[in-house]
Structures are given as C-alpha cells and as structure tokens.
C-alpha cells in the first residue's frame, strides 16, 4: 500500500490521474498535451503510477493507451471505512457536492 500512497503524493501524478479520469484511454502524446511537463517527466510519472497499479496500459494497434485503475483507491477505502459509516459518508460527500457545486475541491 506504501507504493500507492507514494504515487499519489505528487501533484503532477494526480494531475495525470485527473486527466485519465476525464478521458479514459489516452496515449502518451495526448497525456502530454496542455501539461507543463516534459515528455520524459510524464513517462517517469506514468511508470510510477503503473507500478502502483493506479494506471493500466493496453496496446491498441501501434498505440499504447493508458487507463485510470481505481481499484487500489477502493482497497484503501475498504481498509479504513467501516461498513456502518459507508452510507453516512456517502450522504456527507453528496451534501458537500451539492453545496459546493460540482467543482472539484482543491
């Protein structure tokens, strides 16, 4: 689980995950678009995200497409969120979303 937290503990890597969350299945070039990162930096971050199983890549023809894999994040949630808290937490996050609009929290 350390490897997942380490992978998440970086703004640039979270930015890449956000991008894959918005658009599933991007190539390296598409991931690099509009980012203030070099291609080499994106490649390095992607490797860390793939090692943590937060990103899965699949070949499609000549392209390698990247997908956000939410399963490790689910495993973190399962570890600490008690079964009785689940519905209350859902209510709270729904309330927060409603009050703040759909905008992501910073």
């Amino acid at each position: 689980m350390d490897i997942v937290f380490k992978a998440l503990a970086d703004e640039s890597r979270r930015q890449l995950l956000d991008k894959l969350h918005a658009h599933s299945g991007l190539t390296l070039s598409q991931l690099c678009e509009d980012l203030a990162m070099t291609r080499q930096a994106v490649t390095k971050h992607l490797r860390i995200l793939e090692d943590a199983n937060l990103v899965v890549s699949q070949k499609q023809g000549r392209n390698k497409l990247h997908y956000l894999n939410p399963v490790p994040i689910q495993q973190i949630a399962e570890r600490w969120i008690d079964k009785f808290e689940r519905s209350q937490l859902r209510l709270l996050t729904d309330l927060k979303k409603q009050l703040e609009g759909e905008a992501d929290e910073k």
């Binding site: 658009h23 599933s24 899965v56 399963v71």
Partner: peptide
Amino acid sequence: MKNKFVYAIYI
C-alpha cells in the same frame, strides 16, 4: 470519448 474502462488487481 469515454467508452472503455480497465480494472486490474493482483491476487
């Protein structure tokens, strides 16, 4: 476009 999801887990 968002019409494919991939999930992976090691067991």
